[in-house]
């Protein structure tokens, strides 16, 4: 088999046209997923079973099923339902882009809320007690003591999830979106050269992953200034 390096050099710029869409999918669903994750976390640790139980079911379903299935259900399944077509969400759900964002956000929110919960549980109880003993309210304790410490604790897992979400954005190509992966598939369909094209797109994803990891390493270092003396 011959390997066409020229085709790699040719297709990388074509696929980079889709990098904007990849980033849009990534950043928008990361922002929404993070907000959802925080919301689910608060329900989960509220100490009220009627808030915590549905949250656990939600998390179980979205972590327990393939994201591809979730994307298909939202894109192909929901429009079948009349009340969905009549709802205020229809302008979002009738577009493949909206469906991809909804699916990625719902999915990543479930993962993130568990990551956040791990961070919150990792905060030494003595610290919140000390704050309580000073008369600081439950809400203020969560904002000023628990959150900043928990954020630092969950940063490594969070960065993992960002990388994983970035890779999941490629699934948007299955519902007609022309992100980098979508463009790659189009080129393959035209050239019948899957190796060259998919290797090119792999290289781009690897570079993005590298950038995400470097960014989080830097944030982690900055946020750990106060513990540098500890081993």
């Amino acid at each position: 088999m011959s390997f066409d390096f020229e085709l790699i050099l040719d297709s990388i710029p074509k696929m980079l046209v889709g990098i904007g869409l990849t980033f849009e999918l990534l950043f928008l669903s990361l922002a929404l997923g993070t907000a959802l994750g925080i919301f689910l976390l608060i329900l989960r640790i509220s100490g009220r079973w009627y808030l915590a139980a549905p949250t656990m079911v939600y998390i179980y379903i979205f972590r327990g099923t393939p994201i591809l299935v979730q994307i298909f259900i939202i894109y192909y399944g929901l429009p079948q339902l009349e009340f969905v077509r009549d709802s205020i969400f229809w302008p979002i759900l009738k577009e493949p882009f909206g469906c991809a964002i909804v699916a990625l956000s719902l999915n990543t929110g479930a993962y993130l809320s568990e990551i956040f919960r791990g961070g919150v549980l990792g905060v030494d109880r003595g610290l919140t007690e000390a704050a309580a003993a000073l008369g600081i309210s439950v809400r203020q304790r969560f904002i000023y003591i628990t959150s900043p410490i928990a954020i630092r604790l969950c940063l490594p897992a969070y960065s993992n999830d960002v990388v994983s979400l970035m890779k999941s954005t490629a699934l948007a190509s299955t519902i007609t979106l022309l992100d980098m992966m979508g463009i790659a598939r189009t080129i393959v369909a035209e050239t019948y050269a899957p190796y060259e094209v998919f290797i090119s797109v792999m290289v781009i994803y690897l570079v993005i992953t590298w950038a995400i990891q470097r960014t989080f390493a830097w944030i982690e270092k900055r946020m750990s200034r106060h513990v540098r003396r500890e081993a």
Partner: peptide, 15 residues
């Protein structure tokens, strides 16, 4: 009522 703990419990992320 102020309280002082065995394990200090200073907030590690604050000076």
């Amino acid at each position: 009522v102020g309280m002082v703990f065995q394990s200090f419990n200073l907030f590690p992320h604050l000076t």
